[in-house]
């Protein structure tokens, strides 16, 4: 009898629901709301944040990328396309003639950054890349370098001992156009 009374009491006071809502009610009293008023307030990003990708330069302004295509090979979602070639006017020196990233597909896994042998790729802390037109996320080399320029103002020093691309007799070399500028 006492048992049925107890259960009747629980039923009319919604006891089980109160038990279930215990954690919720606790939070209601003890915690502040965590929602940020996003465009006005911004979160502090962790140090290892992987944001927008960028191409970097050395301190003398030259591109770091040597066009080795290893980032393209490492990318799991085929974001990157590198068109490599010889540097005009500097035979046997390789560079990325064109470099494209289709950021609509990027997972921000950072494998390309790991793969890069010359640290030419960096992950910035930029994430505000919402656009109205998806095509704006198909970035070329100039755009990627610009992102790098604004996100990494401190540049790495270029190695001093570089393999010189000169020959004693630069004869009969008509394949490459002369160096621009």
């Amino acid at each position: 009898m006492a048992k049925s009374l107890k259960s009747w009491l629980k039923t009319i006071t919604f006891y089980e629901i109160l038990v279930g809502m215990k954690a919720t009610l606790k939070h209601l009293l003890h915690y502040k709301p965590i929602t940020l008023q996003y465009p006005h307030e911004k979160r502090t990003l962790p140090d290892s944040y992987r944001g927008m990708l960028a191409l970097l330069r050395y301190d003398d302004g030259t591109e770091k990328c040597v066009g080795c295509d290893l980032c393209e090979a490492a990318c799991p979602s085929r974001v990157i396309k590198v068109v490599s070639a010889e540097v005009p006017g500097e035979p046997t020196k390789r560079y990325a003639k064109e470099y494209y990233m289709d950021m609509t597909r990027c997972l921000f896994c950072g494998l390309c950054v790991d793969a890069c042998p010359v640290d030419a790729l960096g992950m910035t802390r930029e994430y505000e890349w919402a656009v109205y037109d998806k095509r704006q996320l198909y970035l070329n080399k100039q755009q990627l370098l610009a992102i790098g320029d604004r996100s990494f103002p401190v540049r790495e020093k270029k190695l001093e001992l570089q393999h010189l691309n000169v020959a004693f007799f630069n004869v009969a070399f008509k394949h490459l156009p002369p160096k621009e500028g």
């Binding site: 035979p91 020959a167 004693f168 007799f169 004869v171 070399f173 394949h175």
Partner: peptide, 8 residues
């Protein structure tokens, strides 16, 4: 090695 020429 010093390079003598770039070949075609």
């Amino acid at each position: 090695f010093p390079k003598e020429y770039f070949s075609a």
